[in-house]
Design a protein around this nucleic acid. Sequence first.
RNA 1: GGUCGGUUAACCGAGUGGCUAGGUAGCGGUCUGCAAAACCGUUUACGGCGGUUCGAAUCCGCCACCGACCUCCA
Length: 470
Amino acid sequence: MQNNLVIYNSLSRKKETFKAINYPFVGLYVCGPTVYSDAHLGHARPAIIFDVLHRYLLHLGYKVRYVRNITDVGHLEDETAGEGEDRITKKARQEHLEPMEVVQKYLNTYHRNLDQLNTLPPSIEPRASGHIIEQQELIKEILEKGYAYEVNGSVYFDVLKYNEKYKYGKLSGRILEDLQSNTRTLEGQDEKKNSFDFALWKKAAPEHIMKWPSPWSVGFPGWHLECSAMSVKYLGDVFDIHGGGMDLQFPHHECEIAQSTAAHGKESVNYWMHNNMITINGQKMARSLGNFITLDQLFSGNHPVLTQAYSPMTIRFFILQAHYRSTVDFSNEALQAAEKGMQKLMKAIETLNKLKPSATSTVDIDKLRKKCYEALDDDLNSPIVLSHLFEGVRIVNSLLDGTEKTDETGLQSLKEFFNTFVFEILGLKDESSGTGDEKLTDELMKIIIELRQEAKNKKSGQHRIRSGMI
RNA sequence: GGUCGGUUAACCGAGUGGCUAGGUAGCGGUCUGCAAAACCGUUUACGGCGGUUCGAAUCCGCCACCGACCUCCA
């Protein structure tokens, strides 16, 4: 495959040329959400970023198997409390629902929101609860290889033992000695040999609702395990790309690497990609911090910090305006700027469809197209792609003004240019026909004018309509 | 405390050792009976102090500030 796609690999901390293991197939695994409350702005980012990657790979001609998991198995919320209650169980108790009802409810919202954001669905969306057996099998493998130990019905990963042969901490740049001296002393960890060991299987307390039988105890799998088990099941021992939020780099992804390596004797991921966080007032937006804005709130404007509603495409545009490895700070101003920018882009595309060709051409679309590919190839630099698209906008408007000219071929390639990058790859769509206030007003005005004309003809009620209009 | 990252004009946000990113706002203009909209053009930059270099916002060092991770998190 001839392509020049370069991806920043978190593992090597370098940009690397992307080479698929088994052309034309690409295996892409992205960590999805734990479904226990409404999806928020932070969830939109990886969904959109990896959607663009997905779309771009498809555009380049790859056959992509895109796997994005759903964490629907309760994991301990607060180990410091000793008697940890997992988040889904807690929510179920609060809302008087079955745990699986909680899961379904928020999974539905998540799907609806991502659909509104115009993301393509993943090829497979495996749930942790549906892969308990696979996870148990993986635990057995790790136990057999000697990198785990059982205590009181729970199974823990032996990090120190693993570190003798492999290197623990390579993804996040952590050194085991530092971890040893710096990890806070948490209560309820007496079972572990070392504080940095992590659970593969956890024996459930009697009141714990989500639990499954296993050779060790009635319990539930450790959080990091599902991704190791499911990625390998659907993408093979070694696959191309694993993505997720930067906050998952440690410990989640580090533990995944350790588990897979311990079980299979080799690493399973070629390229690790991590998107940065969305911040609000300079702080990370997260459910656990309580400073998040849900996507439904953004779309409806129903939140104290929002001065207006923002459409799904405004959110998408806003996120694409920043590079995925940078933090992006939320503000009404920034969202409004994104909204106007996107409208300008869409308007130009509308204008383009009305343009008439000239005999000669003064514009060079090929050059622009090439620049867009270069930007995408350079670690998915969507802000640069957008800047080139706005150069295209300038051209369209100049054509309308008559300061630039182009022939039929040029017009056609300009249309293809926008179609490819705006709609196909960046995944934006024109919302104006459905929700635009201006269009709605225009339509309503037309009806009122017609009514007035009608009333005028019948000589009835015209004064009311006229005075109302003025 | 440890590890890592950031500090770019009014706001958001790219970027390269020398050549205008882009969007929004502002300003000037075109158009319009006026205005709005639209369009065209355009002013404010690279946290501080040193160093390398013919030349640094871009490389190096120190300092300041901010953030992320180290505990669940997208």
